[in-house]
Amino acid sequence: MANEAAIINVAARTSLWLQPHRIVLILVALGLVLGAIFYMRWDWLPQYYEMGLLGIWRSLWILAVTCVLGFLLAVPLGLAQATGSFWFAAPAKVFCTVIRGTPLLIQLWLLYYGLGSLFPQYPWIRESWMWPYLRQAWPYGVLALTLSFAGYEGEVMRGAFAGVPKGQLEAARAFGMSRWKIFRRIWLPQAFYRALPTLTGETVLQLKSTPLVATISVIDIFAVSSKVRQDTYLTYEPLLLLALIYMTITGILVFAFSRIEARIPNKVG
């Protein structure tokens, strides 16, 4: 059997898509897609088309903002854990453990409904400048997702910072670089390169977390599909389309990251 597998392996490398079983599989897949198109109901598409685009845009916006903010937060978190004194490292460690140890859904609900239920006790909040933001749902979604991303990525950055070879930092110090300059020119870029492969995975995971904001009344693409389901009472069509949309976004993300990774020198350390 192993021999067989080896032979097939060689064949697979020579003509990747043109093997008979692949062609059959592709035909079966095509058949399924065509069947889905013809036998399922898609007449609701034009009506929800604009809403869907807006939803996709919102999801992507939340993804981008929370990833960038989360990463910015992850850098100090990782740094504190990798080098900081106990008073810096301990809180960072506790933060990462708590975020990673509890479901995002609970964090989100605690922030939105939990904090919300405390508002009536403090009437001055409604007079403050923050109120127009606190009234809406998306700031809570962004906050929860940012903290979550920071928690997971902070752990990665800790490893990345600790993994930069001591010699490099010592060499930089020998050149008389200031601490800030060492951090900016040597330590951070090296750690970033190390963290980059995991960053792809984390970003995809983050994308997969964004639909949770729909549970606190933010209208992202998931919420749009729920709306379609509720309005039309269709079960499968909106969900299948939604799955396809997420797969496409994931594909684009993975492709984009692989391009970025390819441009970065792969010999690190």
Binding site: S117, P120, R126, L134, S217
Partner: peptide, 17 residues
């Protein structure tokens, strides 16, 4: 604004949202 449950809508009314 549409909520998953009636209770959450009431909750957000009480919270002033």
């Amino acid at each position: 604004k549409e909520y998953q449950t009636q209770d959450e809508a009431n909750q957000d009314l009480a919270a002033g949202r």
